[in-house]
């Protein structure tokens, strides 16, 4: 095997390994996640660093109030 054949063989092995990894990732669902947002979609950070956005969202859809019984005196 010439040095050139040896390199070709190694490239083929690497390509095969990458193909196997790609198949495994696809099977695990990772490839299903979009890489860019569609129009109107936000990330966690975009929402949780924008006070006006959070305020408007919470006003439109307030979080449920945690129910607590009233105690008397000091605990």
């Amino acid at each position: 095997m010439t040095p050139s054949d040896h390199l070709t063989h190694r490239i083929r092995l690497l390509a095969a390994a990458l193909l196997v990894v790609g198949i495994m990732l696809a099977a695990s669902g990772c490839s299903a996640e979009p890489l860019v947002a569609d129009e109107g979609e936000l990330t966690c950070i975009e929402c949780h660093t924008d006070r006006d956005l959070l305020k408007a969202d919470l006003e439109a859809d307030p979080k449920p109030v945690k129910e607590k019984a009233e105690s008397e005196g000091e605990g």
Partner: peptide, 9 residues
């Protein structure tokens, strides 16, 4: 829901 009362403190 749980609550308590204390008579005085």
């Amino acid at each position: 829901l749980p609550y308590f009362t204390t008579e005085s403190s």
